[in-house]
Design a protein around this nucleic acid. Structure first.
Lengths: 233, 233
DNA sequence: TACGATAATATGCATGCACATATTAACGTG
DNA sequence: CACGTTAATATGTGCATGCATATTATCGTA
């Protein structure tokens, strides 16, 4: 039997967590004040605060000033997923990474993206089409638009050695972004690139990143069949 | 021009963040000690600590005792995604939710799941097949196995009114789980249930949850065409 | 009674201090 | 000089305290 150290904030968090799990405090119910808990555990209010703040961060309790702390009614199921650089993801699987640049040109932004990706009208963006490999087998197909206003250095890069993915991470840090996941059927091009039958269901990810108000890049990644994105909760 | 209050930990965090973004501190580079920063900002070390801890949590800096704090080389791209109860997700879209239970029986655990879902050999599990609707249009198809040892009350539930999804969230809280996302082609059954052409690429999610060492449930959710899982980073 | 001012209260946050702990650098001994 | 011991150091965490702030309850007045 492991006994929890109720003198550390993590220990206190465990105790509180168990009470929530064991329904000592019902969902929606208000739990004792920080001051009371501090007295119960024989510690400073600061320590209880730390534990409660952590529980609030993970969504298990809802805290409001004056109103107190209560157990969340529907503990939202949150998962943190890590989106690695493709090279690192492949290498973590023990496979050898390489990529090949299929296309690279300047072109006006396709109308489809005008809403989400606000670059000045008539401004060209850098378009890249890349195929990522793991052990010489296609791993993912990438289509990317880069706003040269946000990443001027990109124009001088060939992106044949360093992938745009990696270069941007290191050279055009973003402040926020939108991410979405969905499924697509392989069309003729995709099936040829990813070496699969036409029509196969493929896992896809789309990402737009900004630095403040300025859009940096729009990527669409389509993974080879069998890809799974995993995480723990 | 918004001036940041360098006396609050969030203010200090913003300043540090900007220095990292602006490459004042290069990736991999070590940044000044808490004590030095505290002096620079004219605040307590605790306050700087709070700011740095927050940056470390989001993966932007790496902290080690004695070794100091340094800017992360490849800021891992983390996204927190919220997996809501389907009813809530549908209602948040302003649509009406309902579900219909297609199958419900006790059966031995399929061999496919023996590895991941450890119930005693010969033990039956509760199997449910559910279709979720939004405004009477199919939204997601669900196949679920419930370990009755972990959620005994489930045997007495019909799950016709309350979905298993929702009931379990409220009655069998889990401590951790595995989550994965992938794409599947609609087979004959799926295409009929989800009212789509056979072969359509569908977004799918699989989830296993445990309470300690005891598996609670295994769900596989397959969403109707067009579904996108979104999040911000 | 209606409604706005005011007081009470729970959490949020900053401070200064002390000690714990992990890690690295320096040192000393064989 | 190699290698294990020891000291120095940066972060991690706890405590007591005081004030800030958001929210709710209460009270007084028209």
């Amino acid at each position: 039997m492991t006994l929890t150290d109720t003198n550390s904030w993590t220990g206190i968090r465990e105790v509180l967590l168990r009470r929530i799990h064991d329904r000592v405090w019902q969902p929606g119910e208000q739990i004792p004040h920080e001051a009371d808990l501090a007295q119960e555990f024989g510690c400073a209010r600061t320590t209880v605060n730390r534990a409660l703040r952590d529980l609030a961060e993970s969504g298990l309790v809802i805290r409001k000033r004056r109103a107190g702390t209560r157990v969340a009614l529907n503990p939202p199921q949150r998962a943190t997923l890590t989106i690695p650089i493709i090279r690192e993801e492949v290498e973590a699987l023990g496979r050898t990474y390489r990529h090949s640049l299929l296309e690279r040109d300047l072109r006006p932004l396709p109308p489809m993206l005008h809403g989400a990706f606000q670059v000045s009208l008539g401004e060209d963006v850098l378009f890249l089409k890349t195929l990522h490999f793991a052990d010489d087998r296609p791993y993912a197909f990438e289509e990317r638009y880069i706003n040269l206003k946000a990443a001027p250095g990109a124009q001088d890069m060939s992106f044949e050695d360093v992938s745009a993915n990696e270069w941007l991470v290191h050279n055009a840090p973003y402040s926020h972004g939108d991410l979405s996941f969905f499924a697509v059927n392989a069309d003729k091009t995709l099936s040829r690139k990813l070496d699969t039958a036409s029509g196969t269901a493929l896992f896809a990810m789309e990402r737009i990143t900004w630095s403040g108000e300025v859009p940096i890049t729009h990527v669409r990644l389509i993974f080879a069949p069998g890809y799974r994105m995993r995480t723990e909760i």
